[in-house]
Design a protein around this nucleic acid. Structure first.
Lengths: 195, 195
DNA sequence: GTCTATAATTCGATAGAC
DNA sequence: GTCTATCGAATTATAGAC
């Protein structure tokens, strides 16, 4: 029983560290979120963080693992992609602080930036590929979707510009959904180059 | 003549420090850009930075002073706002690294975040007010414009997502301009609340 | 498993010689 | 005006007692 109890306690400690790390990384970014502060939040000794996660970098990697859990495009009506996507992003972001932590850290930390690129390549691009078939500009369209959604996250959570931070979810959806819809499905505008 | 020469030399040194500071703050963000590294870039002694600017915070404030130099809406055709704005942003951003420095620092530094809010309130909102008269949702519209443009800056310069970072200016303008145009002039979509 | 003590760096800032 | 030397604080990380 001793081993079982210890394992369970140790798991709870690990989880507490991870939750505190996510909050701190989300609030302060990578360099300003200190192991000491994270440990204090989790009400444990700083040395335990090192014992469990080895280094600050590996702790961050564990805390910032992020799955957008995007809906399957096959389940959505083609005309409703925009609305469904914006609503899903807002709900997923506000479910926990992981995405904001990742976004904030990605600005100054190379590993976090690479992780953001992975989220883009591994989750956004496949979704757009499924939603906008028979179009060779999938990467462009996905990048444009990302640009609007990352800008929304920045202005709503990180910079907290008052008009965007205070806007209701419904208003955000009503304004942004048509833009995503356009990026996903609209014929490419006249351009100097093909790609 | 001695005073004049000294003054000129001192001015050149100040300018060199400021240019190096902008590059470092843009590349590394506020905390990781050290005074020592900035001084090394400018090829002067770190102590001189302190002598000239007093503290790292005041150096940043000087380096991140930023004027978007937005065009006068009265000079533009109402249907061409979107195109003119996107093009102007791209040119102004790439003219020097000041905006990226400010954006990067604003994620972890409170003073920089406040400065970003000031740029929004003092430069974006007045422009939108002039471009979209007789509409009470000016702050909303300005916030939406900011969300798309900040997202563009993030994905193109900070995260450097390949499809956006590699896109030509003309393609960026062709894709983004209609979105800004929509945020500026389109009747507000049906919403739960008025404001 | 937990915590104390501390090593090893690195930073912003200061004092003072020249 | 310029630079050397250094302080004091804060950080990650480690070693080892209990």
């Amino acid at each position: 029983m001793t081993a079982g109890t210890a394992a369970r306690r140790s798991d709870a400690t690990r989880a507490a560290i991870l939750a505190a790390a996510r909050r701190r990384f989300a609030a302060d970014g990578y360099e300003r979120a200190t192991i000491r502060a994270i440990a204090a939040d989790a009400d444990i000794d700083p040395a335990m963080v090192m014992r469990y996660y080895g280094s600050k970098e590996r702790l961050f990697a564990a805390a910032a693992e992020f799955d957008l859990r995007l809906p399957d495009p096959a389940q959505l009506s083609r005309s409703g992609y925009g609305r469904a996507l914006v609503r899903h992003f807002l709900e997923r972001w506000e479910e926990d602080g992981t995405f904001v932590a990742l976004l904030r850290a990605a600005v100054t930390n190379d590993a976090a930036r690479d992780q953001m690129r992975d989220v883009f390549a591994g989750q956004i691009i496949p979704l757009v590929a499924a939603a906008a078939p028979a179009d060779r500009r999938v990467a462009h369209r996905a990048g444009l979707v990302a640009s609007q959604m990352i800008g929304l996250a920045m202005t709503r959570y990180v910079l907290a510009l008052p008009p965007i931070a205070r806007m209701s979810r419904d208003d955000v959806v009503a304004w942004i959904a048509p833009v995503l819809q356009r990026y996903l499905t609209r014929p490419a505008p006249p351009s100097t180059a093909d790609s």
